[in-house]
Amino acid sequence: MLLSLGANPLSGYATMFTAAFGSLEGFSETTVKSIPLLLVGVGICIAFRANVINIGGEGQMVMGALLATAVALAFPAFPSFMLIPMVLMAGAVGGAFWGAIAGALKAYFNVSEILSTIMLNIVAVQFMNFLLRGPMIDPAEIERGTGIPQTMRLSENADLPILLEGMRMHLGVLVALLVAVGAYFLLWRTAIGFRIRSVGYNPDASRYAGISVPKNVTSALAFSGAMAGIAGAILVFGSESHRMVTDGGSTGFTGSAGFNGIVVALLAGLHPLWSVPSALLFGGMLVGANALQRAAQVPSALIIALNGLIVVFVVSSEYFKQRYAQAGRVEEPDDNDNGVIVTEGGNNE
């Protein structure tokens, strides 16, 4: 691809890699870029485990960020150790609420979650545009008459502390890692996770065993939304401007993390812990792409194409794995000597 753009691919990728991981500063940038990807990705993992495809990461981020911002606006004087957990919680609640709407629609009215989450994305963005132009706009913007849709500088008590002096890496990194580990525990070590996975694998058997399918589908999407909501909150309070800004268009401030998180989750094999390296890779690609644009005049949009290619490879490798497994099964005879059968014809009556 790089060749077609007239650049040396090897040195191009080397540039990308060095920019993203070659220096402490680069790595710090990469981690910051990875935070929303990781959080959304982990949320996607949970939804997928319940056999629900959450494309609503964008909207859930927006709603989380809005509620978190509202909390920061309402209680600006609270000390940091209280305000930061509060805004993160508010982010989670906002996202969870938005996710649960799609979940309940799916669970109780059989509305496709793919459609409902996409539509809820649009609703959320327009709701944000309304709030940031009206009720939540920075009073200074009105005074000056510029009317840029953004909030005022949010309380400094809510700023996410910087972890490394002089760099941008902030507390959000730790929060995201914590959430990833928490999601792992949720899925494999708790009764809730057990039910979510059971419902995802086999709703019929779950129902028959007394596990409520609608409740667990809803809760899976709520958890998924909560993680995206935290990502939204972190984007606001970890940003340099420390305010919530909208471009007034249809995307907002998320940098499409709500969609890229899906790619992160797929590459991670829908496992919350594998999502960590996966998110770092994609975060690094975002950082590297900017460097590449500077070094080799290759448009950074290239990275979008690269993302797409990775999805194609990941998904198709899954397909080939299955094909291979099936072919292997047919080749083997149906011998149940040790109690294990390998053919599909297990139900021969």
Partner: peptide
């Protein structure tokens, strides 16, 4: 209806009572 094929043997055996003592304490398996 009877079993979750993708669950392992032990998970299927606690399908009915995964949320009761002694298999689950305070929500943790």
């Amino acid at each position: 209806d009877g079993a979750v094929g993708d669950f392992d043997v032990k998970e299927n055996l606690i399908l009915l009572n995964h949320n009761r003592e002694p298999f689950c304490t305070n929500g943790f398996l």
